[in-house]
C-alpha cells in the first residue's frame, strides 16, 4: 500500500530524513520509534505532504502512485490521514461543521455528491459513540479549549469519520491519561481491517500495549536503524535508545 524508497527530505538547509525505506501493506500495523529529533514527526509530515519539507531524493508512493506532486488535501482524498501531535484550534467552526466540510470535500474530489444530512448525522452518532464522545462536544468549536486528551480523542474521531486507507498517528499517546489512552487505542483497533493500515509513531512503548504492532522500526538520525517484531519495542523500553546509537557508529 505505502512504499517509501530512499527518502531524503530537508527543511531550509537542514537534512532531516537521510534515506528512509519502508513498506506498509494493507492490514498491517507498523510502529515507528526513536529518540527526540530523530525524524519521526518529519517522516509523518512528509508522507502527508507538508510543503515546508523539501524531498531531495527518493519517493513516497501509495498503491503504486507516486505522491510527489500531490498537495496535502489530494493525499487526504487518496486515503492518507495524519493524526496531529498538536491539533490546531479553529474558533467559530464546530466539530460537526468541520467534519461535514472535510467529508464533502473528499467526496467532491471523488466525483460524488454531498453526503445527505441524515446519513451524515447517523455517521457522526455512530463514530462519536465509538470514541465515547459526548454529543455536546461536537457543537463546540474545533479544538478550542479542548484538553490534551479531548484533542487526541477528536483526532481519532476525525479518522473514524474519514475512514482512511493509511492512518498515521503522530505521538497520539502524549498527554493522555491511561483511561483516555485506552479509549483512543480501542477506537483505532475497532477501525482496523484487512484493507487499511496504521503507522503509530511513538516515543514510548506504552501505547503499543494497546495497539499491537506487526512491525517495529527504530529511526535514528534520519534513517531506520533497526526493524523487528513487537518484541523490539519491549527491548527499547528496557535498554533505551543509546545502544542503537552506538551500533550505528560502529
Amino acid at each position: 500500500m505505502l512504499k517509501i524508497s530512499d527518502l531524503h527530505a530537508r527543511v531550509d538547509d537542514k537534512e532531516i530524513l537521510k534515506g528512509i525505506n519502508l513498506e506498509v501493506k494493507a492490514g498491517e500495523v507498523h510502529a515507528i520509534m526513536g529518540p527526540n529529533g530523530s525524524g519521526k514527526s518529519t517522516l509523518a509530515a512528509v508522507i502527508a505532504g507538508k510543503e515546508e519539507f523539501e524531498v531531495t531524493k527518493g519517493s513516497v508512493s501509495l498503491d503504486g502512485e507516486n505522491l510527489e506532486d500531490s498537495a496535502p488535501e489530494e493525499r487526504a482524498h487518496k486515503g492518507i490521514f495524519l493524526s496531529f501531535q498538536y491539533p490546531v484550534e479553529i474558533p467559530g467552526v464546530s466539530v460537526t461543521n468541520f467534519m461535514k466540510t472535510a467529508i464533502n470535500e473528499s467526496r467532491k474530489a471523488r466525483g460524488l455528491e454531498d453526503m445527505p444530512a441524515n446519513k451524515m448525522l447517523k455517521l457522526i452518532r455512530e463514530k462519536s459513540e465509538l470514541l465515547e464522545i459526548d454529543r455536546k462536544f461536537l457543537s463546540r468549536s474545533l479544538n478550542e479549549g479542548f484538553s490534551g486528551g479531548e484533542k487526541k480523542r477528536n483526532e481519532i474521531f476525525q479518522m473514524a469519520m474519514l475512514e482512511p486507507k493509511l492512518a498515521i498517528l503522530d505521538e497520539t499517546d502524549s498527554g493522555l491519561d491511561i483511561d483516555a489512552l485506552r479509549i483512543v487505542a480501542n477506537g483505532v483497533n475497532k477501525l482496523k481491517s484487512k484493507d487499511n493500515a496504521v503507522i503509530v509513531i511513538t516515543h514510548y512503548q506504552r501505547l503499543l500495549e494497546y495497539i499491537v504492532p506487526d512491525f517495529v522500526h527504530v529511526i535514528h538520525d534520519g534513517k531506520i536503524v533497526k526493524s523487528g517484531g513487537k518484541e523490539l519495542a519491549l527491548e527499547l523500553e528496557e535498554k533505551g535508545y543509546d545502544w542503537l546509537k552506538q551500533e550505528t557508529v560502529v
Binding site: A48, R75, A102, E105, S106
Partner: peptide, 11 residues
C-alpha cells in the same frame, strides 16, 4: 494550521 486543514482533505 493551513497544513492541518489540508490534511483533512480541505483544499
Amino acid at each position: 494550521a493551513l497544513f492541518y486543514l489540508q490534511s483533512r482533505g480541505i483544499p
